[in-house]
Design a protein around this nucleic acid. Sequence first.
DNA 1: GGTCAATTATTTGTATACAAACAATATCTG
DNA 2: CAGATATTGTTTGTATACAAATAATTGACC
Lengths: 160, 160
Amino acid sequence: MTKAAGMRAPACDEAAAGETPGWGGYVVEAQVGFLLRRAHQRHAALFQEMMGARDLTPTQFTALIKIVTCGAVTQNRLGRLTAMDPATIQGVVRRLVARGLVERAFDPADRRTHVLRATAAGLELARQAVACATEITAATLEPLSLAEQPLFLSLLKKLI
Amino acid sequence: MTKAAGMRAPACDEAAAGETPGWGGYVVEAQVGFLLRRAHQRHAALFQEMMGARDLTPTQFTALIKIVTCGAVTQNRLGRLTAMDPATIQGVVRRLVARGLVERAFDPADRRTHVLRATAAGLELARQAVACATEITAATLEPLSLAEQPLFLSLLKKLI
DNA sequence: GGTCAATTATTTGTATACAAACAATATCTG
DNA sequence: CAGATATTGTTTGTATACAAATAATTGACC
């Protein structure tokens, strides 16, 4: 199974052999943006591999957990809580609703908004998914020692 | 009940106020996957803000730099060098070619491949963009002290 | 009350990102 | 050499991610 998460896009093999120098030491693979993109890719691959059976993407999982823990939120507020803009959260919520994990209710106090709540199925899936997500976090951080992990997380938080 | 303090655009405002406990201490905003996604988002926003005038996305920039420094590469090999799968690199290269920054040549030795090279315009844009990208890297890492920056990068590299 | 600005949700368009399937070509194997 | 296998590039479909424009509604202000 393992499928070697990077068979098709392993990236950066046979690295910088025979490259032209003279670029002031600029190496694109060493830049923080490139490394962040790669680390995010690796995490997403681990997430899909380990959460795949439940058919939840990282963003769908985040949105579902936020709806469950917040109890009832509007769509835009959910977007702010999960760092997704209105166009993005719209699609994420639409797919969660289509799967019966989330339901929308009209808010008589504000007819613009749709209040979101988790269904029983959504709550149950969330419970299972949190246990799985804990393992995904551990797998993602596995290359770091137990001492390095909290250090890395504290530095990463500063970059947001 | 939520305490609705200010509604800003970014995300994750008014954090976890009034959330239901009992999830074993799992806080989705503190997980490495969420933080990586947010850090990558912030970098992408800085990139667009500072590179916007040259109309290059992070991936287009990475691909162009790799073509320039490698001299001549096939499309799939470029994808491996930049961590993009064949479907993704196809679109990136197509847009670079459409803008006249890259040109394709047939390889008589292998009729499957198209050899990619930077045009004069692509080379000139790459020169300017590298200077800009250096500033983007600095801006991204700016929240960290000069001592923390290499430490963070070394830890981040281990996660790939 | 009436006007205007702000907010909510949606839609459109563009750009990654990847799975899956495909045709054309190259390479390996017997 | 012939057949199996692998690689290259493309296409389709789905899912973020965001800019920009939009309609409906709310709130603020006069």
